[in-house]
Computed example of a mutant assay.
Amino acid sequence: MNICFEGKRILVTGAGQGIGRDLALRLAKYKGKVFALSKRLEFLKTLKNEDSTIEIISVDLVDWNTTRTAIEKILPIDMLVNNAGVACLGPFLKLSEKQFDLTMNVNVKAIFNISQIISGDMIERKIHGSIVNVSSQASVAALKDHSIYCASKGAVDMLTKSMALELGVYNIRVNSVNPTVVMTAMGRLGWDDPKKSQSMLDKIPLGRFAEVDEVVDAIVYLLSDRSSMITGVALPVDGGFLAT
């Protein structure tokens, strides 16, 4: 699939490590002007060292106003990937208000905040924009010790659909990708225990977890004009987990 993002300004949140980092590098390889956002400046610096064309932005997405100021400074943006996320895992009865608020602020509220600014600018410029939100199979299937995380990703899916409904008239497409376990730093939080990970693998028809590149491929496709008639979808990258 021949894809080129030359002339496109693309923001990737959560780009310091994991899926976001690899995505930023891939988009830069495809000639996009990439803006990589993360709370962790030390991770962003190593990304910049790897590809000097990538612009880095260090901001805590929990801070609504600081985030808005940071995003407004880099406008215009033509494509957006809301990838930043946190996972506060534990038994439902033991999770705290602080963990709930952090998860919802990063996983849901930040998507709302950033997308509102960027889509508003897209509308003013009358461009055909594309937004991809990184969700999870946990938005559809409940997972043990993931109650807050599952709830946040369910919210991401419905926010994606609502955005697609309202922004479609402006030729702005909004989709989500919904991966199974990917053994990034976040993935290891929940699935590093071989016994626990095997219980998940047993439910995946393809018998393995997703590779980072496989998730990146799906995001790139949904960003690109190759998916020009696709909006409002939640694309599983789950090896068939949700089919069982």
Rank of each mutant, 00 (worst) to 15 (best):
I230R: 10
S176P: 08
S136P: 04
F241T: 07
K94P: 07
D157C: 10
I74C: 04
N65V: 12
L75G: 09
L235C: 11
K73G: 04
L23W: 00
Q17I: 01
E214A: 03
V181S: 07
M186T: 03
N133E: 09
K48W: 03
T244R: 11
T46N: 11
V59F: 05
D22S: 11
S130A: 13
S152M: 04
L167W: 08
I19V: 03
M158C: 12
G240S: 15
K196I: 13
S58D: 01
V81P: 02
I148L: 08
T160D: 08
L159G: 02
S38N: 01
N49D: 14
P194N: 02
I57R: 02
M163V: 02
V108S: 06
W191N: 06
M122G: 06
F5M: 09
L47N: 00
S58L: 00
K126Y: 05
T46P: 02
A151N: 04
G16V: 02
S224E: 10
D63W: 02
L235I: 13
Y30P: 05
E97V: 09
L235N: 02
L89T: 15
L80M: 14
M158Q: 15
I131Y: 01
T103G: 08
A185M: 03
I219V: 15
K94S: 15
A15C: 11
S227V: 03
A234H: 15
A185L: 05
I56Y: 01
S119C: 14
F5R: 07
E166G: 10
L41N: 13
R40F: 01
L242E: 05
T180H: 01
M1Y: 12
S162W: 14
V140I: 11
L41Y: 07
Q17R: 09
L75Q: 06
L44P: 02
E124V: 15
G90P: 12
D22E: 15
N105G: 07
T67D: 00
